[in-house]
């Protein structure tokens, strides 16, 4: 990770006052410490770029298909996610405390705070295990495995009344739409001139723009609109109405398990993509947490052996920086997946 020359071979030959931990090519401990820190920060910048690629994928997927993210996010447990955020923030604090105590030469306090940080890492992974296990149990796998469902018949939850009602409402509006379109076909063949009340629709609110159509929900009815609008524009409006109806009974942030996705008539197309990027990003973050935990364990053992002093605690400082960047990445992951 970083090149730190803890041992300086044969430093006695020089015959001048050179501490054990100081590499020969350094003028003094401060210079060595500063160089180590710069190296670590450069590494952290590459970590930001690594996750940046995944955040870019997330941004493109979400901007193309917001409905997949809105839908998939319901199946994540916001409470566990928030608790995990707290666990990481507190462990970040104990890590920063360890650095402070190390700089003051208080080894016993360093050991205590490093153990607390280690508990934080273990706690985070334990909660992540519970969450992942639940997802796997329900068959929310990344990629095509989402549709495999080896034990689907045992796991599928019964459809709730609201889902059935919504399915019926969709069918009804589709039927009304096709009736209206059929009526319009008849009208067109007989009477090509626009209807007498066409004036009614030329309201300022109802403007057709490049983004689709802004509608006044109270005065417009899908079946009526079908008479005047091309199917492409109409499709947009039906989507918007569906979204508004969905928003009315769905409080964001609260899980609404209407039905298992494979049984849910409202499951958006390619819904597995949410879980693909969820497991990819939280999985890579989880790997970082495990590595951070190993680093902290190593620091703990070195501290217990008395390797560090107030003149030399560079590994604790740099390990801490790594632990904080893991926290920073989770700070972005949490709202992007759990709070949609």
């Amino acid at each position: 990770m970083t090149e730190l020359h803890v041992q300086s071979d044969g430093h006695e030959e020089h015959g001048h006052d050179h501490p054990e931990f100081l590499g020969h090519h350094w003028k003094n401990p401060v210079q060595q410490f500063e160089a180590g820190k710069l190296g670590m920060w450069l590494f952290l910048a590459t970590e930001v770029l690594l996750f940046g690629g995944l955040f870019c994928a997330y941004a493109i997927w979400r901007s193309n298909h917001p409905e997949i993210f809105k839908y998939g996010s319901q199946f994540l447990d916001t409470t566990w996610g928030a608790i995990n955020t707290g666990v990481l923030l507190i462990s970040s604090m104990t890590m920063a405390m360890a650095v402070t105590f190390a700089a003051r030469g208080n080894n016993r306090a360093v050991i205590v705070t490093l153990i607390l940080t280690l508990f934080g890492a273990a706690g985070f992974m334990a909660i992540k295990y519970v969450e992942y296990n639940h997802k796997f149990h329900e068959g929310f796998y990344p990629g095509m495995a989402f549709y495999e469902q080896p034990h689907a018949s045992d796991l599928w939850l019964p459809l709730e009344e609201t889902a059935i009602a919504k399915k019926a409402a969709i069918a009804k509006s589709e039927a009304a739409l096709s009736t209206a379109l059929a009526a319009e076909d008849v009208k067109r063949s007989e009477m090509p001139s626009p209807p007498a009340d066409a004036q009614r629709w030329n309201k300022p609110e109802a403007a057709i723009g490049p983004q689709g159509m802004t509608t006044n929900q109270e005065s417009l009815d899908t079946a009526e609109m079908a008479v005047f609008l091309p199917p492409s524009v109409l499709g947009n409006i039906i989507d918007q109405q569906g979204e508004l109806a969905y928003a009315e009974h769905h409080t964001p942030g609260e899980p609404v398990h209407l039905a298992h996705p494979l049984q849910d008539p409202e499951r958006p197309a390619n819904a597995q993509k949410f879980f693909t990027i969820y497991f990819l990003m939280t999985g890579l973050h989880g790997i970082h947490v495990v590595i951070g935990g190993v680093v902290i364990l190593w620091l703990l053992l070195k501290t217990m052996k008395g390797h560090f002093s107030r003149e030399y605690y560079t590994p604790i400082d740099l390990g801490g920086l790594y632990w904080h960047i893991v926290d920073v990445i989770w700070i972005f992951l949490f709202p992007l997946f759990y709070l949609i």
């Binding site: 923030l89 920063a96 700089a103 107030r310 003149e311 605690y313 709202p335």
Partner: peptide
């Protein structure tokens, strides 16, 4: 060798971060 951040300041910072977490969950 390096800068030393007081423990009290670290606790205050963590507290502020936890408050912000609650805020972001509430806003969502």
């Amino acid at each position: 060798v390096g800068h030393i951040v007081p423990i009290k300041m670290l606790i205050g910072t963590c507290f502020a971060l936890l408050i912000l977490t609650v805020v972001t969950v509430w806003v969502a």
